[in-house]
């Protein structure tokens, strides 16, 4: 009887009591148990306005996006305050796994094709594992296919530009989420020799929910000026303010922004509108999500 230590005697004695005293909440915890609870819905959509949010499409979910930016509102009544002009981007964006998504898009802006990959490195969570923020990485490549008006041929490699971005976000509570996006943009070809090929920028964005289905979003990118600034284009830092309206399977994003482009390369490096001069575009993104599983 050596193997019956006093501890096991006590255990056997009390075993039935342990079993009967087990209450249903304990049982539930045992099953779903010490799990880590990951934060969901930090933002309503994969974009805050023009730039990316921390959100991804989940596995097998396909997002069809149609985005428009109208002309600048300071164009006056003849252009119907910009609404006569329109710049558009269509894209299909897909969740390959829960942590990895990829998308392809086409913008009328410089007849650009773009492809991107975004994946999650850390997810905000509480419970077993506590993580104060979510962290993702985004990389994209854009190909400008405008006709080359100057003499000679332009090699295709010169038409590419690349973006690397880290996304750090935190959902503070049901209403408030904030995000910080350090960004690097590389352009293979720039307008003049004095224009920088590399641009660094720091994006900040946030949303505040006004109701369960409506939030107000703000996005701003501070573009770090080059040390020796001889940029040929007078550009401004992009600032956008808008609303997200979610109606079941759709998210409508309506906003005002001083940038025309809807990809990082464009709105970070080539925003020429100024809020102070009314160089603002009205725009919208429509997101429709299809579940392709089953």
């Amino acid at each position: 009887m050596k193997f019956f230590k006093s501890g096991s005697i006590v255990f056997i004695l009390f075993f039935p009591f342990i079993l009967s005293a087990q209450d249903i909440d304990q049982l539930l915890e045992e099953v779903t148990g010490n799990t880590t609870e990951y934060t969901i819905a930090t933002f309503k959509s994969t974009r805050i306005v023009s730039g990316h949010s921390i959100e991804r499409m989940q596995k097998s979910q396909l997002d069809f996006r149609i985005s428009h930016r109208f002309g600048e509102v300071n164009r006056g009544g003849y252009e119907f305050w910009g609404l006569d002009q329109s710049s558009v981007r269509f894209s299909l964006e897909y969740g390959i796994t829960d942590w990895l998504m990829a998308g392809l898009g086409r913008s009328s802006y410089e007849k650009t094709y773009d492809g991107f990959v975004k994946f999650s490195i850390l997810r905000q969570s509480k419970g077993e594992q506590n993580m104060p923020v979510s962290l993702s990485y985004l990389t994209s490549a854009a190909l400008n296919t405008l006709k080359w008006e100057k003499p000679g041929e332009l090699p295709y490699t010169d038409r590419f530009s690349y973006v690397h971005q880290l996304l750090v976000a935190r959902k503070f509570n049901e209403r408030l989420s904030l995000e910080f996006n350090p960004t690097y943009v590389h352009r293979n070809l720039v307008a003049t020799e004095l224009d920088p090929n590399d641009i660094w920028a720091a994006g900040v964005g946030g949303r505040f929910k006004l109701s369960k289905r409506v939030s107000i979003n703000i996005e701003y990118y501070y573009v770090v000026p080059p040390l020796h600034d001889y940029r040929s284009l007078k550009t401004y830092n992009p600032l956008s303010v808008g609303f997200d309206i979610e109606t079941g399977g759709h998210v409508f994003q309506l906003h005002f922004t001083n940038s025309l482009a809807m990809i990082e390369k464009g709105f970070i490096g080539e925003t020429t509108g100024s809020w102070l001069d009314g160089g603002i575009h009205f725009g919208f993104n429509i997101s429709r999500v299809f579940a392709l599983n089953k």
Binding site: E37, A41, Q61, E246, V289, A291, K294
Partner: peptide
Amino acid sequence: TLLIKSFEFQKKLMQEHFNE
């Protein structure tokens, strides 16, 4: 007893809206 978050939907967005 059950956890609401353990309900699984085919459409993930729907699951998110259901919870949120």
